[in-house]
Amino acid sequence: MYMENALENFEISISSATCLKSNNTIFSDINYTLKSGELLLVMGPNGCGKTTFIKSICGIQKLEEGAIKLNNVDISHGDSQHLGNFLYIGHKNSLNDSLTVFENLEYLCALDRSIQNNIKSEITRNLSFFGIENYKNYLVSKLSEGNKKKTSLTRLLLTNKKVWLLDEPLSYLDENGANKVLKLLNNHLIGGGIIIASSHIDFSVDIGNSKVFYMDNSL
């Protein structure tokens, strides 16, 4: 089910993707092909449809026209098992306020079938990457926005999925944290992964092999 053995042919193609929301065109006729080791950085002003674009790739947002293909299999209807290769981290953190950092990560990882069973020690080990190991047993409601973001991005270290869809991965992060995220992204690309990320900051200069896509929505 996972594409670990098929890295050479790993490819996502977005062809003539068009999305409407209550009769407004959010984006139209987008064509991109991404191969293993490439990043697509979606940029643009607030409200231009970056989030909608990211969501449409993992099937949350339905496309009006066009197709998203993973290795030539159309996945835009959102029900194919190929969606198992995607890790979507939205700008909302998916963290439950009444659970601790550790518990939240444990449960988010329970949803991710690319992660092997012995996850508890892995989580503890990886929390130190962003320097939030001291917050391990804090309730998420007590954390600052930046630390929530770091908690949510720790999933990147734990998952084995090949395609990362990241919505505003750098928001709320301090410079140090942002650099660590960029390092993670670079490592993932070197390992043959694909990343589609949205941002209003152009970080493509820090990352090799990246394409930048400027969205310009004139509503």
Binding site: M1, F86, N96, A110
Partner: peptide, 17 residues
């Protein structure tokens, strides 16, 4: 409501479990 607001709903709808 909570799962919708904090994004957990999207996470588990796009998960492979």
């Amino acid at each position: 409501k909570d799962d919708y607001n904090n994004g957990y709903l999207e996470t588990f709808l796009t998960s492979d479990s």
